[in-house]
């Protein structure tokens, strides 16, 4: 308990530096109060902050559209496999990348797709044009998205598979007696059966809109530049910890945290409105 208090709640108190002009040499208590000055960056629309906010939202949007459906499709495919053994084999392979750290995933992607990576070697030795996706500013978002899919899409199927296995088999039997084909069964039984979990997870994801792949981006920010790669968390890191703007960084982090809580609670409310259980019921 003491540890949790020390490293979780003491830092929360430490958020007071968001309201101070923090000077490392004189400490937190001695630093002067500056009220909401540090928040000016946010509310006056500092271009770098706005850029970070914009990139965060764009990435969240891209991931909601391109990453979110992948595990659903994979789960449906896996579920429709007749051979139990094949299914288990495919699952073992697809779950694996989830347990690798981002450093490893990024290293794997570089050795495959980087300028000196396997793909480009192959293209070069066959006299084809090379294709550099790593360190390419325009393609950076594509790269991030494909890494997220590679790492976590397989793992994310677990929850959908669980829901699929709970759909009452009698429904399918009844439908097939009534002459419904496989496509109609998918449309009228399987998808309605998954509706709840899909809405729930989607809303949860909206709740964490302000958090996108921090480690993943920090690792790859160098060659790309901040114009497309800076997100809120990297902004806090680059300005606060590397740049020494402690107060501003803490202010941005604090606002992000508070907005995040509001989003999660709000998302939960919305889930209730949809008649779903949401994350919890009070």
């Amino acid at each position: 308990m003491a540890l949790l208090l020390l490293f979780h709640y003491v830092p929360i108190l430490g958020n007071v530096i968001a309201f101070k002009d923090y000077q490392p040499y004189i400490g937190i208590t001695e630093s002067a109060w500056v009220g909401f000055d540090n928040f000016a960056v946010i509310f006056n629309g500092d271009p770098e902050f706005l850029n970070a906010l914009k990139n965060t939202l764009i990435l969240t949007g891209i991931q909601a559209v391109f990453v979110f459906p992948v595990p659903i499709a994979l789960a449906l495919l896996l579920n429709s496999l007749l051979s139990e053994r094949l299914k288990r084999l495919v699952q073992s392979v697809l779950y694996l990348p989830h347990f690798l750290s981002w450093v490893i995933v990024v290293a794997v992607f570089q050795s495959m797709l980087g300028g000196a990576g396997m793909l480009n070697n192959y293209l070069r030795s066959n006299g084809l044009e090379t294709f550099d996706i790593i360190g390419n500013t325009e393609l950076f978002r594509v790269l991030l998205t494909s890494q997220v899919i590679w790492k976590d899409a397989g793992w994310a199927t677990i929850i959908f598979l669980a829901v699929l296995s709970q759909i009452d088999a009698q429904l399918y039997e009844a439908a097939s007696v009534d002459g419904a084909g496989r496509t109609r069964q998918l449309w009228h039984i399987t998808l309605p059966g998954m509706k709840g979990i899909i809405i729930l997870l989607f809303i949860l994801q909206l709740g964490s809109s302000l958090t996108v792949g921090f480690e993943q981006i920090v690792l790859q920010q160098g060659p790309v530049g901040t114009s497309t790669s800076e997100v809120l968390d990297t902004y806090v890191y680059n300005h606060g910890i590397l740049g020494g703007n402690w107060g501003v960084g803490a202010a941005v982090g604090l606002v992000k945290g508070v907005v995040g809580v509001v989003l999660v609670l709000g998302a939960n409310k919305v889930a209730h409105l949809f008649g779903e259980d949401g994350v919890y019921r009070s």
């Binding site: 709640y9 003491v10 830092p11 530096i17 890191y237 402690w246 982090g253 604090l254 945290g257 809580v261």
Partner: peptide, 11 residues
């Protein structure tokens, strides 16, 4: 509610 990167670092 997470504590945020900077306060954690400072602690």
């Amino acid at each position: 509610f997470g504590p945020g990167m900077i306060p954690s670092y400072l602690v």
